[in-house]
Amino acid sequence: MDYFLELLLGGLTRGSIYALIALGYTMVYGIIELINFAHGEIYMIGAFTALIVASVLTMNGMTGISVLILASVVAVLYSAAYGFTVEKIAYKPLRQAPRLSPLISAIGMSIFLQNYVLLAQTSDYLPFPNLIPVLPFMEPYSQLMGSTELVIVLTTTVVTVILTLFIKFTKIGKAMRATAQDRSMAMLTGVNVNRVISNTFIIGSALAAIGGVLIASHVGRINFYIGFIAGIKAFTAAVLGGIGSIPGAVLGGLVLGWTESFATGYVSSDYEDVFAFCLLVLILIFRPAGLLGRSTAQKV
């Protein structure tokens, strides 16, 4: 039973992070119907920025929670800036192009960003300091769930709630929903569609950076390639839950996290990624609209 509980909580942590990254995918897809392949790389850049800032700060004698906060804030800002720039360079000139073009451009951008970090930094794994402090009241449960894991789950919950409220009630959120429904109609009612798309990229990238800082603290090491697998898995999570839907992304993340956790725990740990991909294929075959998505008929 303990083993089961351990896997359950492990899957919850894992799933929370997938959910954070999946939110960015799902928002971008909802608005411009593009799989932003570079999203995983934005998350990787967030983790790298946090590592660099944290290292520089600790070497200059700073310690404690302030390092975590400063590093996270800088990472979020930088990731948002990267997301914004990537959209302007690789996707905006292709608004009118056939669907295949922005997709290929996105793959190119992803390869570019990976190799940019590889060349500018290093190809080795870098140890990532655990910035999240150990919470004393979690001490008795440390066998099951550490403080880092607790922080991850709580952050995801808070972020999701804020995002849901933001999209529901603010003006920017309303403009985003309008653009997702019908871009030309939104334009006619005075929504600045280009700005909405930029906003979406900025918000999605900021969420990815939070995910990056959290997972790097959890795993304890990063390299330039972490964004690739994380990106595919987060995309799987987004599709699983129904792409375009925010609660769907969270649900999908959790389902994926648990699937992986139980499959590696009870079946075999060698095939961790295979389970994720198989789940993706199965979902797409049997329920292409995802768990919470609505299937839309193609209009001619």
Partner: peptide, 8 residues
């Protein structure tokens, strides 16, 4: 890096 740039 060049492959990626080329594609974009």
């Amino acid at each position: 890096l060049l492959f990626g740039t080329t594609m974009v």
